[in-house]
């Protein structure tokens, strides 16, 4: 029996997907794939990419931490924040990346003190993750439609 996957955040229900064959999630102990008939599991998630694969299509999401519950072929992802790949604003992510890189460059070259390095690094990581998820989708639009 295929999986039913629900991705929810405090603000909205991001996606409910039925008939899922495999789900790949960024677990805090490392990436993990969930197949049908998985044992009941409760795990924390790190920031990363969540992939939901079905026979005909593959959907990918950005997740910025949260929890995942697997129980009787029902997977519930309680994400701190999450977006589907097609919702990502590439221009914005690109701008965020440029901004974060610029800040870090100033620290490196001019020893700037007004920059919160941890914050800039986190922002850079976030933007890179979003770009990766968004671009992967663009390059691989899935199997050709018949």
């Amino acid at each position: 029996m295929p999986l039913t996957v629900e991705v929810v955040t405090a603000e909205r229900v991001v996606r409910v997907e039925q008939g899922v064959d495999v789900l790949v999630a960024p677990g805090s102990e490392g990436q993990l794939a969930i197949l049908p008939h998985h044992a009941a599991l409760m795990t924390t998630l790190d920031a990363g990419e969540l992939i939901i694969r079905r026979a005909s299509q593959e959907d990918s999401f950005v997740v910025s931490g949260g929890f995942m519950e697997v129980n009787k072929d029902r997977v519930t992802i309680l994400a701190d924040a999450s977006e589907a790949a097609e919702e990502i604003d590439i221009a914005r992510a690109e701008a965020a990346r440029a901004r974060a890189e610029e800040r870090l460059r100033r620290v490196r070259e001019q020893n700037a003190r007004d920059v919160d390095i941890a914050r800039a690094a986190a922002a850079l990581q976030r933007s890179l993750l979003r770009l990766r998820v968004a671009n992967r989708r663009r390059q691989r639009p899935g199997p050709p439609r018949v």
Binding site: G27, S28, A39, A40, L41, M42, T43, T44, F67, D80
Partner: peptide, 23 residues
């Protein structure tokens, strides 16, 4: 006992509680 907790029930709980307040 039904669930497998990763990394452990304690860690999951510690992450969950602040979320619960926020929510």
């Amino acid at each position: 006992s039904d669930y497998i907790f990763e990394p452990s029930p304690e860690v999951v709980l510690a992450r969950l509680l602040p979320r619960y307040i926020e929510m």
